[in-house]
Structures are given as C-alpha cells and as structure tokens.
Write a protein that binds this DNA or RNA. Structure first.
Lengths: 203, 203
DNA sequence: GTCTATATAGGGATAGAC
DNA sequence: GTCTATCCCTATATAGAC
C-alpha cells in the first residue's frame, strides 16, 4: 500500500516531466517508464491509458497552482499593492514550472477539448471584485478608465510572455542563462511600473 | 512543369495548415495528403521526409513575415509613431496566421534545435538603432530611462499574448468570437497607450 | 504489484505499375 | 507525376508468469 503509493507518485512526477517537455503527442510511455525507473506495463496498470495518465497529471499540476493567487486578487488590498504582489507571486510560481505556460499553450492549440476544462481563470481572478475596483479607482480620479479585460491581458501578457518566448528572446537579445535570471528578476519591477504608469492620470 | 508547381504549392499550403494546427508530432502525412487532395506517396516524392517537408514550410512561412516590420523598426521615424505603426502592422500580420505564434512556441518548446535556426528577431528589429533611439529620447527628457530588452519584451508580450492565450482568455473572460475581433482591434490602441504612458516623464 | 513477452495498430517511407 | 500496395518500425496496450 505504501509501496504502491510511492510508485504512483513516481509515475505522476515522471509523467509530468515528460509531458511538459515533449507535449502529449511527443511524449512516449517508454520514456515515462524509464524516467520513473519502472516498467512500461506498470503505467497501464496504474492508469489505463496515455490519455488517462495525461488527465491525471494535468489536474494534479493545476491544483498546485492558483490558490494563493486567487486569494490575492480577490482581496481588499489597494490596487497598486495587488499588482506588485500579483506579479511577484506569479513569477515565483512560474519559475517552479518554467515550461508550464508553453506546455499549456501547446496543448490548447493542438487539442483544445482535451485540456480546456481543466483550466479556470477564475481560480486566479475574481473578475467582479477587480472590475468594480478599477471602476472605483477611476471614479475617484486615481486612475484612467480602462477595461478590466485589457487590464488582465496586459498583466498576464507582460508576465507570461518572457517564459513562453524564452529561447527566442535569449537568442535574439543575446541574454545568457545567468543574465536571464536577473532579467526575470527585473521584470518584477518593470511590469508593475509599466502597469502603474499606464494607469496614471496626467492632467 | 506547371502542373508540378501547382502540386508542390498545394502540398506546401496543406502542410503549413496541418503542421500549424497539430504541431510536428501531431501532424499526419495522411492528413496533409488528404488536405491537398493527393496521395501520401506523392508527399515523399516531392519532399523526401516529414522533417524536410516541415523545414520547407517553416522557412517559407517565415519569409512571408517580417520584412515590412524590420524596415519599420529600423527606420528614422519618431518613437511614438514607430510604436503605433509597429503594433498595428504586427497585429495585422498575425491575424493572417493567428495560430502561428502558438505553433512556434510549441515547436521551440518541444524541439528547439529543429526550429531555432529559422528564427531571427533581427528580421524584425534593429536593436542598435532602437537602443540609441531610446537613449536619445531619454537624454532629451522625453521619456523615462528604460532597458531596450524590457521595451522589446513588453511590446511583444502585449501584442502576442492575446493570440497565444486566445482560447483561455475567451473562455474565462467570456468573450465570444464576434467580440474577440473587436477586442483585438481595441488592442491596437491599448498597447501603444500602455507603452507610451509607461515611458512618459511625470515630474 | 511488477515483470517479460506479445498482440495490434498506426504512420512514415519505399517499390513498382501506369 | 501520380497512383496502389506494401514494408517495417515504433508505440500503445494487453496477457500472463512470478
């Protein structure tokens, strides 16, 4: 029983690593088995098929993300603090799974129906709270008028894009691995500044 | 000869469509053949292997992108005009191949070496020109001091992310297909405003 | 639960007729 | 140049021993 639990976890960890690295179509059950140090047949013993194994790791991975961020964005703290904290937390989360955003984009592109149900933005954002907060700040004259949708897409784009475009950016802007870490660290400041300056009322 | 040219083009068009839709690993030579209305064996007659076919369409696709944008960014027009025009042009280009950014991210993630050589940011940006322009504007007191790297990543992130994240964004922000078109249209304004406000000197 | 061996299918690639 | 038929390998999945 204890043994079994360990094997199942080894499989899940290996499957996650390989699926994220290769994508669903590129992943091989053999490679997952090798990575877990077990036999291919054992994968099918624990999870009936490749599809089911994929579903298992995908749900599992997503339950590890999100929660902390959801709480943050729906909370009653000031908008500016929210932005700074969100970006910092979000970058830290992605750093743990740097290939995850690319992977998700991959799979959604290739097979939307397989993956879309797993994803709920609402785990991350409380839109109504955010929407009324933006409206509120605008009415008080603290910020310019912006659509919640563009606000969300701006923050996510600024935050996520460097991770999904990492190799292209690195190669073309000639940023080596050491500088890259610093570059990401710098974005924790650049992104909130970009957003806050965008929102700032000037006249 | 004329006939042959047409067949080759049909194959390239079909291959592009299927590769972009399914990714390299998910693409099937059979599906490409069906899409082109020809036989599977004919694919191998024109292009020896799946890999070679992939390389052919990839180079080909990229030669269609870029040129206009490269010229724009290295030109001597004012920074603000450059940003507005770049975003507008870039969005228009991506709209022709909306799945292309996801596809590139896919393939780079899964098999960097196969694809990375095809990609040259320098087709799009002249960094030195841009860098000195940013420095120049800063010294004149027109804009705040920003790193060229973050400037580039900001613009690209704001522009590209909506396309790669389309389905997630649509689903979670409840934007239907009709509104989506308008949303993208709106970004032609939102993005330059975001960037320009970010750069604005306030004190 | 875990292994070896094998069934079965799918897909890239080639042979050869026309 | 284009087709049909087929080869052959690879990958998922199952059977069955231990």
């Amino acid at each position: 029983m204890v043994k079994s639990r360990n094997t199942e976890e080894k499989i899940l960890d290996s499957a996650r690593a390989i699926f994220i690295k290769r994508g669903f179509d590129g992943a091989r059950m053999q490679e997952i088995a090798d990575h877990a140090g077990i036999n291919k047949a054992l994968l099918h013993y624990y999870f009936r098929s490749k599809e089911k194994l994929f579903d298992a790791i995908f749900s599992d991975t997503f339950q590890q993300l999100g929660p902390s961020l959801a709480a943050l964005f729906s909370s009653e703290i000031p908008l500016e603090v929210k932005i700074w904290k969100f970006v910092e937390d979000y970058i830290e989360v992605i750093k743990k799974y740097p290939q995850l955003p690319s992977f998700i984009i991959n799979e959604i592109n290739v097979n939307p129906e397989r993956i879309l149900d797993h994803l709920k933005f609402s785990d991350f954002f409380d839109y109504e709270e955010l929407k009324s907060q933006l409206q509120d700040e605008y009415e008080k004259g603290h910020i310019i008028k912006v659509d919640m949708e563009h606000f969300v897409v701006n923050i996510l784009g600024l935050t996520i894009f460097p991770f999904v475009g990492k190799l292209i950016i690195q190669k073309n802007l000639k940023i080596d691995e050491a500088s890259w870490e610093q570059f990401i660290e710098d974005r924790k400041k650049v992104i909130p500044v970009t957003i806050m300056n965008w929102l700032k009322v000037n006249n």
